[in-house]
């Protein structure tokens, strides 16, 4: 797994364009910015491909992981971009961390909780930025760190 991966996914209502660089990308930010919308689009495309009506452009296979049988799903995923939405407890488990460490996939995690088992960089924490119909990833400003530094 090397290099940047560009992803462009759209339907009639909205379009997401972003690039991922490392094996783990975390997406956080405010509610209502489109994280679940993006995950649902990937999920529908994973299930139905072009028949979903969604247009996906990516050099790698994109997969939306679901909680049921996630270990088996990851066993099957090779050289892919795996998207995981919030609400799945397994993301913070040691089992999941071990699988990620030995994997050649890229992972995009929509999760706010701190994942102590995973080796991700603070430089790879993004939020979704919207301009018109187009949504992109933007590096998240660490407002808390700034607030704490200023107040101590």
């Amino acid at each position: 797994m090397k290099g940047k991966v560009q992803i462009k996914i759209k339907n009639r209502k909205c379009q997401f364009e972003f690039e991922i660089e490392r094996n783990i990308t975390i997406v956080r930010g405010d509610s209502g910015t489109g994280k679940t919308t993006l995950f649902n689009m990937i999920s529908e495309y994973t299930r139905l491909k072009e028949e979903s009506g969604i247009n996906l452009q990516c050099s790698k296979k994109c997969i939306a992981l679901t909680a049921i049988d996630w270990e088996h799903q990851l066993e099957q995923a090779k050289d892919s971009v795996v998207f995981i939405d919030e609400g799945d407890r397994f993301v913070s488990s040691k089992d999941f961390a071990n699988i990620i460490r030995n994997s050649d996939n890229y992972y995009v995690l929509f999760v706010r909780e701190n994942l102590h088992e995973l080796p991700y960089s603070v430089n790879e924490i993004y939020e979704i930025h919207t301009s018109g119909k187009i949504h992109t990833f933007k590096i998240m400003q660490d407002r808390l760190r700034r607030l704490l530094c200023c107040s101590l």
Partner: peptide, 15 residues
């Protein structure tokens, strides 16, 4: 404004 008319189940996770 983005998705048009939606059901309550399509609201953000936060709401």
């Amino acid at each position: 404004p983005v998705l048009g008319m939606i059901s309550p189940e399509q609201l953000s996770g936060g709401v």
